[in-house]
Simulated assay, not measured.
Amino acid sequence: MTNQSVREIETLIHDHVIVVEGTYSDGTAYRYEEGGWHYWFYEMSYSDLSEVIEGLGVVSVIETEGGGEGEGDHVHMVFRVVFDDGSVRFFRIDGYYQSYDGTEIDGDLFEVQPVERLVTFYEAIGEN
């Protein structure tokens, strides 16, 4: 398992710049660079993409909560990091959503672990 601190991991993930290149249908090439929590929340979390970060390993956003109208003001992201040595750790960072300001990730990254829980739902019987 890696011996990097949570702060070192936070910096590597936050400061990682993702380069996206392609060609529009009219043949025009495009290239842009994105980074920071905003990119991870809005781009990486809505896809099954992973990003290789040098000195860290393969990073994926595996859970997001909030970030839109009607979803409350709480926002968080959970990352899975598969380190170069094959070990896996999970991290979460919190933030908030405001309709006039959008999503802001303003918490500190902290380590979490997956926990399974039994959940009970109550559903209608017959017609309602």
Rank of each mutant, 00 (worst) to 15 (best):
F91R: 02
G126R: 06
T64E: 07
G35P: 01
V82W: 00
E8M: 08
Q4P: 09
T2E: 09
W40Q: 03
G57M: 00
V58Y: 05
V112L: 06
Y122P: 02
E21Y: 04
Y30W: 07
H16R: 08
N128L: 13
D15F: 08
E54C: 10
D15P: 03
I9L: 11
V112I: 14
M77A: 09
D73R: 00
I53H: 04
F79P: 04
F90P: 01
D15A: 11
Y30K: 08
Y32C: 03
L118D: 13
G107V: 09
D84N: 14
R7H: 05
I9P: 11
G102P: 04
I62Q: 05
E127S: 15
D26N: 15
Q98G: 12
H16W: 04
I105C: 03
V61E: 03
E34A: 15
G57E: 00
G72S: 07
Y97S: 08
V119G: 01
R80Y: 00
Q98L: 14
E8H: 06
G126W: 03
G72A: 09
F83D: 10
V112C: 05
V78W: 00
W40M: 08
H74Q: 11
S25P: 12
I125C: 09
V82C: 05
G67A: 03
W37N: 03
R80W: 00
V119P: 02
R31V: 05
